[in-house]
């Protein structure tokens, strides 16, 4: 593989945002995802190739380590930040249509719940895998999700909850979506959830980690 792409992929996986960022200490002073992505474009590498051969595999490796219990939230967050720094150079090509998005993913933390670390991680991972992400924020009421589906009929919905007290609100939201859109794809995630819970509330898919959500979305457009 192209050496530049390899470096970029490693920068994303390691969470090296840009040249100035002090993390990780071992890469101090080296170019980060920001500079390397710019250099790759200047070298004439197609944005789609950068995305598919450097950014997505880099994020995928850290995502896999996270799923395996070998990396943790800080490593994931900083990798996602590096990914975003690279992605901002790719964004104009999405806008111009030169690179096609895989689809629209709408995510929010359910009503009553203000926690967003998990939701943000999933949003960043999915954006990094080539989707347009619409983040509705925290404490999101059912109407907001319905409105989003109305505007983006082919979107996939993602619901997040951290608390056992708010996970029950997922059921309310899923029911309201199902009443109007019986077959709409709805992903759920959050610390207290389980496959059993997902099935009971009628959601489409549960993943215990962000990488699982990314893989589900990949399958859904395959």
């Amino acid at each position: 593989m192209n050496e530049l792409l390899e470096k970029l992929s490693l920068a994303v996986e390691s969470g090296k945002i840009n040249k100035l960022s002090p993390y990780p200490p071992a890469m101090r002073g080296l170019d980060g995802a920001d500079e390397l992505c710019q250099q790759a474009l200047e070298a004439g590498i197609k944005p789609e190739v950068i995305l598919n051969d450097a950014l997505i595999p880099g994020m995928g490796r850290i995502g896999k380590k996270f799923s395996d219990g070998k990396a943790f939230v800080p490593e994931m967050l900083i990798a996602a930040k590096a990914m975003s720094a690279a992605l901002k150079h790719i964004k104009p090509f999405f806008t111009s249509g030169e690179v096609k998005r895989k689809g629209v993913f709408v995510i929010g933390t359910v009503m009553g719940d203000l926690h967003d670390i998990g939701k943000n991680l999933v949003a960043m991972m999915i954006e990094g895998s080539g989707w347009e992400v619409i983040d509705l924020g925290v404490d999101v009421k059912p109407e907001k999700f319905l409105e989003a589906i109305n505007q983006h009929p082919d979107c996939v919905i993602g619901l997040s909850a951290l608390l056992t007290t708010t996970m029950v609100n997922m059921e309310t939201i899923v029911k309201q979506i199902r009443a109007q859109y019986p077959d709409h794809k709805i992903l759920v995630g959050g610390a207290p959830l389980s496959h059993d819970f997902c099935k009971k509330i009628g959601a489409t898919f549960y993943s215990s980690d962000p990488q699982g959500a990314v893989e589900f979305l990949e399958r859904s457009v395959a």
Partner: peptide, 11 residues
């Protein structure tokens, strides 16, 4: 629990 013993979400 993780393959390397118990860890918090932050490792």
């Amino acid at each position: 629990n993780t393959p390397d013993g118990h860890k918090t979400m932050m490792g």
